[in-house]
């Protein structure tokens, strides 16, 4: 053990752990050696075995310590996954979406149904031009499209307000 202690200590020091963490890691290495001693068949490999185990133990220790290291939140990169809606708001959103879809199914005009589904899901079952009706020369009449949308929304609102 005296022969290999400097090697283990040198590898452990290279990980720049805090002194207590380093002491724990080094002791874990010797405890591991004690446990594996009856199974070690090649004494000439002991040095490299100890190096490997020390690296594994110190690496794990460093990862664990890093998880508990206090950091300035402003220094953290923006994590968009933290801004994702939680399960409750996702559920409410789905409920709202389903209710809207049921109301759209009750619209009598097939064109309006397709248009509403397009606005809701971004795609309709059947091809639909979101720009609304076009004149013979293929130009969109913005006023007609806006009026149709307004009427459709009014009918949808009425359907949603009806008691089910």
């Amino acid at each position: 053990m005296d022969r290999h202690l400097p090697v283990v200590n040198a590898v452990a020091r290279s990980y720049h752990l805090s002194p207590p963490d380093r002491e724990d890691a080094v002791q874990t290495v010797w405890l591991t050696l004690n446990q594996h001693l009856p199974r070690l068949r090649s004494p000439e490999m002991l040095r490299s075995w100890l190096r490997r185990v020390t690296r594994d133990v110190c690496g794990r220790q460093r990862r664990q310590s890093a998880r508990l290291q206090p950091v300035d939140p402003r220094s953290l990169p923006r994590d968009d996954s933290l801004r994702a809606p939680g399960p409750e708001s996702a559920y409410l959103h789905k409920e709202e979406h389903d209710e809207l879809r049921r109301a759209i199914r009750r619209l009598t005009d097939p064109g309006e149904r397709r248009a509403a589904l397009f606005y809701l899901d971004g795609a309709a079952d059947e091809p639909f031009d979101p720009d609304g009706p076009r004149s013979a020369d293929g130009q969109v009449n913005p006023r007609t499209a806006a009026n149709q949308r307004r009427r459709m929304l009014r009918r949808l609102r009425r359907l949603l307000e009806e008691p089910t």
Binding site: M1, L5, N34, P38
Partner: peptide, 21 residues
């Protein structure tokens, strides 16, 4: 050897126990 090279010698010796061989 530098002083740190033999740090933890007593803890290392205490690790050797043949109970669970």
């Amino acid at each position: 050897l530098p002083p740190w090279a033999l740090e933890g010698r007593s803890a290392a010796l205490a690790a050797f126990d043949r109970c669970d061989d």
